[in-house]
Design a binder for these strands. Sequence first.
DNA 1: CCATAGCTATACAAATATGAATATTAGTTA
DNA 2: TAACTAATATTCATATTTGTATAGCTATGG
Lengths: 299, 299
Amino acid sequence: MEWSALRDLLAVAETGSLSAAARRLGSSQPTMGRRIEQLEKQLKTLLFNRTSKGLILTPVGEQILGYAKNMAENANAIERIASGADQSLQGVVRMTMTDQMGNYWLPTKLSEFRQRYPGLRLEIVVENRTLDLFKREADIAVRFSRPQQLDLVVRKSIDYHYGFYASKSYLENHDRPESLKDLKNHSFISYDETIFSNAALKRLENLIGEQNIVQRYTSNSGVINALTQNLGLSVVGCYFADQDERLERLMPTQFDYSFNAWVVTHADLFKSARIKAVFDFLVEKLAEDATDFAGVSSH
Amino acid sequence: MEWSALRDLLAVAETGSLSAAARRLGSSQPTMGRRIEQLEKQLKTLLFNRTSKGLILTPVGEQILGYAKNMAENANAIERIASGADQSLQGVVRMTMTDQMGNYWLPTKLSEFRQRYPGLRLEIVVENRTLDLFKREADIAVRFSRPQQLDLVVRKSIDYHYGFYASKSYLENHDRPESLKDLKNHSFISYDETIFSNAALKRLENLIGEQNIVQRYTSNSGVINALTQNLGLSVVGCYFADQDERLERLMPTQFDYSFNAWVVTHADLFKSARIKAVFDFLVEKLAEDATDFAGVSSH
DNA sequence: CCATAGCTATACAAATATGAATATTAGTTA
DNA sequence: TAACTAATATTCATATTTGTATAGCTATGG
């Protein structure tokens, strides 16, 4: 039995089709088909039922799947260890962070980074879902909640402050809210709960009332764009909102939420000079900008 | 990273050389070399140090080895499950048992077996060491101690009796021992402790004295052959010794040891019709011959 | 000190696996 | 019902992988 075929099995089972599995593994559909076919021949068992919509695991296939997943975990660990052993300051490092951090904050630091580590290339994965560091979907993540898993290296980096904002033109056409109870008279733009879910936001939404929440976005940028369209008001990160001429902060002394941001990597990877360099760079630069992330209220 | 290459890594690490690993995996030395080389390239890490005597793991390689072993365990489980799912009464079943059981007892049952299950082929692995059912070195084993591991299916099959024997010609030239204390005046042929180690034998050897133990064998057959060469006396299985015209049992009423024999297979495999058929056949035939295994004393 | 055994490394022909292109099938939608 | 979509199956030229044969290296034993 070819171990590699079990990886194929896993991909087919998880994606549901040969074609999708081939896309994930950078292979082709006929190849995947033949590999699964051969695996079945060697194991003398039917692993998938073929349909025109894809492949569905047989009961035996289901049983086997769990073991294949274990193998994948171990294979991932091996890749992490090997990466961790690489002491050269060359190669690629994948990071994941929010769209704003990735698209607006990070670029301002890149020229310095490039100067300091000319051999390193950065890949910034801006994805809304939390990428899996164990599967090495990313090497380093900036998270707004502290991950509790063992095997992770975590550094607290900044207090990221959020405040109430509205666009200036919106304020020209509406009453300016002066206290939290005024919020009931305004439309509110909020966040998709699959992305950004926390107790403070929930309480706020209760205060405002569901009927006033006119839109939900999966990103800070989306909310800011909605604000500039005069859709209403919202809570956004001060660091970015303050830079936006079109926006104005409301009730800065009464309302100032702060979330800790954390830089995270896997302990195996942290042994790598490459990963460590990027990790430390991120922590350093975030510390330098700490006061900016605190927003106008602390200026 | 190619998962199959990790299997190669495991084989090379365990055998110590590319050539030996190739033999084990049924591949060739250049292929193994290239696969390891490619794995190192993909992981960007040196995994082995090459010497003219073979390959030795680097520290990183050592770290990785453990994970590769985990993968192997899972791969083995997959193979067992697949085999267990095979409900056809066709194919090969590998058994392991002592040389006497395998070479002398079993063959007397084979024609009946063949008649009952024409599609099944048997492989009898006569090896002195205990084969690993988890690694599928064998599908079914006959053991003389009850395995304690979970996941195994175990059936008590027979009481296998051992008695004192000497060759008739030996007895013509030596005093016939009438009680255990007479044993001090005789040479004794015993068993290699890596193969057959148990408390009763130890006590007996103490009684006889190390200086009187003139030879050690790893198999019952070896001991019987030594007896017929008039090397001394020994303790052997009654079932075989009684059939041998050249041998005679000594002190049958005073000395009769019995060991339980067990038929064992892995729970995963027991689901297979093929394995179950052979397992049940073995248990059935051993039960039929149970009184024979009890030796002359019970006739 | 030479002969041998066992290993790795290299070269090249043969076997094998791959992917682009295409045919085929089965659901879904207008 | 016909057109569309997304999947699996098939074909074949091409690229890759493999094994045989061979050379080179290094310990070990008489």
